[in-house]
Write a protein that binds this DNA or RNA. Structure first.
Length: 603
RNA sequence: GGUCCUGUGGUGCAGUUUGGAGUGCACGCCGGCCUGUCAAGCCGGAGGUCGCGGGUUCAAAUCCCGUCAGGACCGCCA
């Protein structure tokens, strides 16, 4: 598989510590690395020497030092994580003293001389050992965290992913193009990071939120297929699966391509990534799910499809009929009654159900529940509904004794979303999802527009450059809320991996599409001058997508947090605890940029 | 902008519900003993503004208010 890493033979080392085996017995070797652990027996000292990590050859070997050695007192005094270079002879360990838990455990190195290369102070947290260090300390001393191993292993996997993406995309005819980091601020979407221009007082560059316009301009420039592992910058709040500030996307765009062409390319790429970089498996083609249907069935547009469990609708069967006012009044209020099976949850404590009801309340819907205990039903609904109605409800979700049924009443979308959140949590808590499965799916047919609750007008619900399905006719004839876009997401295991679209390359359709969102031609032109102009000079139809590089790694590595797959991540509030960014700058720097700092507005 | 969780020697935690002496566990650190350990062992020791500020109380790690820091989430992320 992996080629052996060539090792420079120099004054520090001629052999990797982790490579020693019984075959090496008798060899004179020179090793370098960290003191991972010391075991001081007074007259005899054992040192675990750990070589640098991130390669298969790295590892640990036991050194034996005898008191006759000149440097014995020095070694006794050195703290763990100090760095040494030693020469010595590889000797076999007897059967009683061999360590089967160590790859090098059949041998040890009898040390003849030691050179101390650097010394370590008392550590802020242990490098060796099972204990988890706190998140803050790990970030502040990221280099020590790396020495623990797993982070570097993930970085190695990250490097392999980058390499695989590049070789694969090249064989598929994609041209890797680097696009600017200093570019123009864009009026749409996320908040920009701004970079003041020294040469042009009062003017700013912006860091790209994504190379969206550049890749479309590459299409206009006749590039057939473009890709890039592209840095993207957005000044928005973080989540566990969303880095603050910066992240990477496998950005790609294809000329003369349809939605299906994009799907095929991404399926090829993703299945190769999964095959070569994980022990999981997946099958292509990925299922296609319509957005509206997905939200209806799973309560989210990024469902975890590793398990069934669909949200049922009981508005028709229970609404308007029962004695229970919230159910009885629902149809008249335009509300829906939604229900979700919670398998084997009948004996959950009251607290668990209350937490669900609280969560539902925060989303503006009423949550209630029914527990099908073997010795009778419990929960608020059991007292308020007739036996027949309870049976109807249980049947709707397929509940058996021992299960519970969760219900929500409220506006359709919110009633579904509340249960969608519970569905995901149930999958994790009850182990419904096969941890080795990767359930990819395409979510298609996103709505083009959505109502702005403040203005009552129509906003683009996703990318304003997406092609509306039905083109000009749809824009002219349909209710904006009913117009779908050639806009799609790739989801996997409850994670949104990617978002893309067939682009709108026609100025006439663009004009009509933007008009519905309240933009006139002048505003399009001033907001997106490059694209608007380029599309008047014969742009090819094109489509693309941008799978999240960091999120793919999260998925491959089974990590719940992006920080685990990034070498030097920012913390939740976008601070770099290691480097101390952001930070104030000196007045001379500000003067040169013609900037003055104002106090933050009073709260 | 908001909600929730967490903050206790260098590290990871328990103690907070029900106020009563900085009480406890594991690791680390310092000193001593120890020639076959590999989480070495044994003996001894040091190390604390219980994040910070205010309040209630005879008495606060514990209750209340505020604030700071870390995390999860809502808003936000076309």
């Amino acid at each position: 598989m992996e080629e052996t890493r060539p090792l420079a033979v120099n004054r520090y080392r001629d052999t990797r510590a982790g490579s020693l085996r019984p075959d090496d017995v008798g060899r004179e070797v020179r090793l370098a690395g960290w003191i991972a652990a010391k075991r001081d027996h007074g007259g005899l000292l054992f040192v675990d020497l750990r070589d640098s990590g991130g390669t298969e050859a790295a590892g640990m070997v036991q050194l034996v030092l005898h008191p006759q050695l000149d440097s014995f007192p020095t070694l006794i005094a050195l703290r763990v994580e100090s760095v040494i270079s030693v020469t010595g002879t590889v000797v076999a360990r007897s059967e009683e003293t061999a360590n089967p838990r160590l790859a090098t455990g059949g041998v040890e190195v009898g040390v003849e001389s030691v050179e101390v290369l650097s010394t370590a102070d008392v550590l802020p947290f242990p490098v060796e050992g099972e204990k988890e260090a706190g998140e803050e300390a790990r970030l502040r001393y990221r280099y020590l965290d790396m020495r623990r191993g797993p982070v570097v292993e993930r970085l190695a996997r990250r490097a392999r992913l980058a390499q695989l993406v590049r070789t694969h995309m090249a064989t598929r005819g994609f041209l890797e193009v680097q696009t600017p980091i200093l570019t123009a601020s864009s009026p749409e979407g996320a908040r920009d990071f701004l970079v003041p221009s020294r040469l042009h007082p009062g003017e700013f560059y912006a860091l790209p939120q994504a190379p969206q316009q550049f890749k479309q301009l590459l299409m206009a420039g006749g590039v057939d297929r473009y890709f890039q592992i592209a840095p993207c910058f957005r000044d928005e709040a973080s989540r566990a699966d969303r880095s603050p500030g910066e992240f990477y996307q496998i950005d790609l765009e294809m000329a003369f391509a349809t939605q299906e062409d994009v799907f095929e390319e991404v399926e090829l790429l993703m299945s190769r990534v999964v095959d070569e970089l994980s022990d999981k498996s997946t099958t292509t083609p990925f299922p296609r799910l319509a957005y509206a249907e997905t939200v209806e069935r799973y309560g989210t547009d990024k469902p975890d499809l590793r398990f069934e469990l669909e949200i049922a609708d009981v508005t028709a069967t229970l609404g308007g009929r029962t004695e229970l006012p919230m159910f009885a009044d629902a149809p008249d209020k335009g509300q829906r009654i939604r229900a979700l099976l919670a398998p084997s949850a009948a004996d959950r404590p009251r607290k668990w159900f209350d937490a669900f009801a609280e969560a539902a309340k925060r989303l503006g819907v009423i949550g209630s529940w029914l527990q099908l205990d073997p010795d009778g039903t419990k929960g608020p609904l059991s007292r308020k509904l007739s036996d027949a109605e309870l049976a109807t409800l249980s049947e709707a979700v397929g509940a058996q004794p021992g299960d519970a049924v969760l219900t929500t009443v409220g506006p359709g979308g919110a009633a579904s979303t509340a249960l969608g959140g519970v569905r995901g949590a149930l999958g994790r808590e009850l182990g419904l999802a096969d941890p080795r499965a990767l359930a990819f799916a395409w979510v298609v047919d996103f709505p083009m527009y959505e109502r702005n609750p403040d203005t009552g007008g129509w906003d683009f619900s996703h990318n304003p450059f997406s092609m509306p399905q039905g083109g000009l006719d749809a824009l002219r004839d349909k209710d904006p809320g009913d117009i779908l876009a050639y806009q799609y997401d790739l989801v996997c295991n409850g994670l949104e991996l990617s978002s893309g679209a067939v682009r709108n390359h026609r100025p006439d359709i663009m004009e009509a599409a933007f008009a519905l969102a309240g933009y006139d031609v002048e505003r399009i032109e001033s907001s997106f001058p490059a694209l608007w102009n380029a599309f008047h000079f014969g742009p090819p139809p094109h489509a693309g997508i941008a799978p999240g590089f960091d999120r793919i790694l999260m998925m491959l590595e089974d990590q719940a947090n992006l920080r685990e797959v990034i070498a030097f991540p920012l913390n939740q509030s976008a601070r770099d605890l290691l480097m101390g960014a952001p930070s104030q700058v000196n007045p001379a720097q500000l003067r040169e940029l013609n900037l003055r700092i104002l106090p933050p507005p009073e709260a």
